[in-house]
């Protein structure tokens, strides 16, 4: 890779100042960034290590009974943290399903949300790829088993993060800190432009940092599940995943991963019907059909619709019967 300068930032202010310099990139575990650099998929002259900043690796209780997770929290710590496991088991399960032990021990929450697409056309440098300087999506007419079945823009990428799918089902909000201060986005907004933005999937400006991810107390507990379908038993991204939660107030969230450019929440009318409950097999089948009625699979990935419907049925059975 090209030579880089490495800085371990002493505090948030220093990290932000360094990130404001040209070609600076924040690095957590480096499990994606170092690969991108070695494969010449991104440029950086300065790496700013954001691990060890105050509160960046902690789990803290919030006033509304929720939890705030530091941006540099390790994926393994999310999977193992007692408070997270008790209040947000779907997130703990999602974290536990990430990659391998080594990747979970190194990877951070912020880095997991900011990781780039695994699309093989992007990774192998297809010149027509929107994200490699082209204007199209070679996956549309190419090898697209792993790509999106939902149109979200010109590109048919799927976001690889497992935690993002669970966070979406838990109404989490992401705090981004930049030179102008803190702004807050929900997960849907974070990935809203993933299929259009030529430079990134998560809407994080180059001089911003994911400092916290906040889970609302309203979605603590209740019924939660995360299910991930992958080819291998480990070290795979989701073909399709599904996070679902029924909060104590009865509201339901059902979110699919692996089907769209970001976590894809099913139509709210479906969630509302599940919230009403007392679903029998027939109505579950009908709801699973309805949830997927407007997807547009490509030649090689219609199977994802089948899997998504299977996961939806299982989630609805857990939440709505």
């Amino acid at each position: 890779m090209h030579p880089v300068r490495y800085h371990r930032a002493a505090n948030l202010a220093e990290a932000l100042a360094l990130l404001g310099t040209p070609d600076a990139r924040a690095i957590g575990g480096g499990t994606d960034l170092l690969v991108l650099l070695k494969e010449d998929l991104t440029r950086a002259s300065t790496l700013v290590d954001v691990r060890g900043l105050a509160l960046s690796e902690t789990v803290t209780a919030t006033d509304d009974g929720g939890l705030a997770l530091g941006g540099a929290l390790r994926i393994a710590d999310i999977a193992n943290d007692a408070a997270i496991r008790a209040a947000y088991p779907a997130l703990a399960e999602a974290a536990a399903s990430v990659g391998t032990v080594a990747l979970r021990n190194m990877g951070t929450l912020g880095g997991n949300l900011a990781q780039r697409t695994r699309c093989w056309y992007f990774r192998r440098g297809a010149p027509t790829c929107l994200k490699r300087g082209g204007s199209g999506c070679p996956a549309r007419s190419g090898a697209n088993e792993y790509h999106a079945i939902v149109e979200s823009g010109p590109c048919r990428t799927v976001h690889p993060s497992d935690p993002a799918v669970a966070l979406a089902a838990l109404d989490a909000r992401v705090e981004l800190t930049g030179p102008a201060g803190v702004r807050t986005l929900d997960i849907a907004a974070l990935f809203a432009d993933a299929a259009r933005d030529a430079t990134r999937e998560a809407a994080i400006a180059p001089d911003e940092l994911i400092t916290r991810v906040v889970l609302p107390g309203a979605r603590a507990g209740g019924v939660q599940r995360y299910e991930k379908v992958m080819q291998r038993g480990a070290y795979d991204f989701a073909l399709v995943s599904c996070a679902a939660s029924r909060a104590e107030d009865g509201t339901v969230r059902i979110v699919l991963g692996g089907v769209a450019a970001g976590p894809w929440q099913v139509n709210s009318s479906v969630e509302e019907d599940v919230a009403i409950g007392a679903l029998d097999d027939e109505s579950i089948d009908a709801l699973a059909e309805r949830a997927m009625y407007d997807v547009e699979p490509l030649a090689g990935n219609a199977y994802k619709v089948t899997i998504a419907q299977a996961l939806l049925r299982r989630a609805m059975r857990a939440l709505g019967t």
Binding site: W120, A143, R232, G233
Partner: peptide, 25 residues
């Protein structure tokens, strides 16, 4: 091994994308 039909370029020349079994398998 996957080749792109349009270009003949290998799409999965890595140990993530070319999937050999893991211990979990």
């Amino acid at each position: 091994r996957r080749l792109d039909g349009a270009t003949g370029v290998p799409l999965n020349p890595s140990l993530h994308d070319y999937k050999i079994p893991t211990m979990a398998d």
